[in-house]
Amino acid sequence: MEAFELKRKSLYSWAAVQDTYYSTKDTFERHKVVFTIGTSISSVATAWLGYSIRHYHESKVDRRLESIEKAYYSPYLKT
């Protein structure tokens, strides 16, 4: 009796996995255009964000280097 129940539960579980797979596949196929546009927009947004962060970091580094340069040369300019 136990083996039969175990086999039945495994078959139900496998059927549930297959149903989930086909349902997900169907959803993706029906909304292919939406997903394509969405991923394109998110890709552009990610690239823009990365560029903005890099630009901000570079400007901070440049300001810091300028302040170090000023501090280094200021004693020589006073004399």
Rank of each mutant, 00 (worst) to 15 (best):
L6K: 15
A71S: 13
G38C: 02
E5A: 15
K60T: 04
V44P: 03
T79R: 08
G38T: 00
S43N: 06
G50E: 01
E66S: 11
T36Y: 02
F28A: 06
A47I: 07
F4R: 15
L11T: 12
V34G: 03
I41M: 01
K70W: 09
F4M: 15
E2V: 10
R64I: 11
R64M: 13
E29R: 03
T36P: 05
R8C: 11
E58P: 01
W48K: 09
R30G: 00
R54V: 00
K7N: 13
S59F: 07
K9E: 15
E66M: 12
F28Q: 04
T79G: 11
Y72M: 11
V17L: 11
K9C: 10
D19Y: 07
R63W: 06
S23V: 05
T20W: 09
I37A: 02
Y56N: 08
V34F: 07
T24P: 05
D62F: 11
E58V: 04
L65T: 08
Y72D: 07
A45M: 03
W48P: 00
K60L: 12
K25P: 05
G50P: 02
R54D: 05
S42V: 01
R54Q: 09
E66Q: 13
I37M: 01
F28L: 08
I37P: 05
V33K: 06
D62C: 04
V33P: 05
T27W: 04
S23L: 05
K78S: 10
L49N: 06
E29H: 04
S42N: 04
R64Q: 11
L65N: 12
I53N: 00
A71T: 08
Y21C: 07
Y51L: 07
S59M: 11
D26H: 08
A71P: 00
E58G: 02
S67M: 12
K9R: 14
E58W: 03
I41C: 02
G38A: 02
S59A: 13
D62Y: 10
E2F: 14
A3C: 09
K9M: 13
R63Q: 12
K70T: 12
K78D: 09
I41F: 00
A3W: 12
H57K: 14
L77H: 07
V34C: 00
K78W: 05
L49H: 07
L11P: 01
K9F: 13
T27R: 02
K78A: 13
V17R: 09
V44G: 04
E69Y: 12
S13C: 11
T79V: 10
T36V: 05
Q18I: 13
W14E: 15
Y51V: 03
K70E: 12
T79P: 09
A16N: 13
S74T: 14
S74R: 11
F35H: 03
V61E: 06
K25S: 06
E5P: 01
V17Y: 09
L6P: 01
K60Q: 12
L49A: 09
Q18Y: 09
Y76E: 07
L49F: 07
I37W: 01
S40E: 03
